[in-house]
Design a protein around this nucleic acid. Structure first.
Lengths: 143, 143
DNA sequence: GTCGGTGCAAACACTTTGCATACCT
DNA sequence: AGGTATGCAAAGTGTTTGCACCGAC
């Protein structure tokens, strides 16, 4: 019972061209940027198709979605510190200073990139969401 | 010439309560979450005011905006790697493996947080935006 | 009194979804 | 033939903005 149906994957022209455009791109395009590119080959393609296919391709492990958070969050503090985010309830927890190793990054000089700061976030499961007895909650406040 | 006008900052009841709610919060609230809280004290406050004030408070350095990107980006590759983002043109560049130190994080056990993965991003200026002769561009593609 | 801030509502930008049709396999 | 995928358009979400009134300084 409760079996997830196989849901078969079909490689269509649209899907193929979207994936190709995505893999060919040196940058990390937005859905709309892909839309503009793909439209050169399939003028009548719709933006909805782009979104749907990106979703499917990510599910299939053929692509990755960056910047998960669609909603902006604010922080009352100003000093630099890092966060741990729960994958289930999406809560953010501060990571105490010292918990993070030196984040000294060495970029190859030929890259020509000048580092201003680094952003670092730990993803995982918070205590309440791990604990089995109450089950995972949604939008619960970190303690 | 071209002097930016002083634009003086005024501490209003709304602003004070929003800031207070933000600083008091242990989590990192969204604008809407703050709206719900602040509404208990100022029932007629509008969501627009929340957004406007958060913007101002961040400008004043009294708060911080997390998760800058409002727009989602996709990546044609699957293997885990890290990115460098340009603060001016917002381009994303891959960081070659080996450029990043071990990201072994030690969270205090009493935190009870189980790490699944870490997200890491370098911020700074890319070569084209650093180079003075052409000046910074917007939305330029990383080479 | 002045000029910035507020409430309200409409406008925006990005993403998701319902539906009838089209197309793989 | 059967079940996905597509195009289109409308609906959803989160954020920004125009405007007339209000209020801090």
């Amino acid at each position: 019972m409760n079996e997830t149906k196989p849901r078969r994957f079909r490689m269509t022209r649209q899907r193929e061209i979207i994936l190709d455009a995505l893999m060919r791109s040196e940058s990390h395009p937005t859905a709309d940027e892909l839309y503009q590119v793909v439209r050169e080959q399939i003028p009548r393609i719709s933006l909805g198709t782009i979104y749907r296919n990106l979703e499917v391709l990510c599910d299939q492990g053929m692509a990755t979605k960056l910047e998960m958070g669609a909603q902006r969050r604010y922080d009352g503090t100003t000093h630099e510190h890092y966060h741990a985010r729960c994958l289930i309830c999406d809560s953010l927890f501060d990571i105490p200073a010292g918990g993070v190793p030196s984040l000294a990054v060495q970029l190859p000089p030929e890259m020509g990139f000048e580092i201003t700061n680094v952003k670092f976030e730990v993803r995982g499961l918070c205590r309440p969401c791990r604990g089995g007895n109450a089950g995972p909650r949604t939008r619960q406040k970190p303690s």
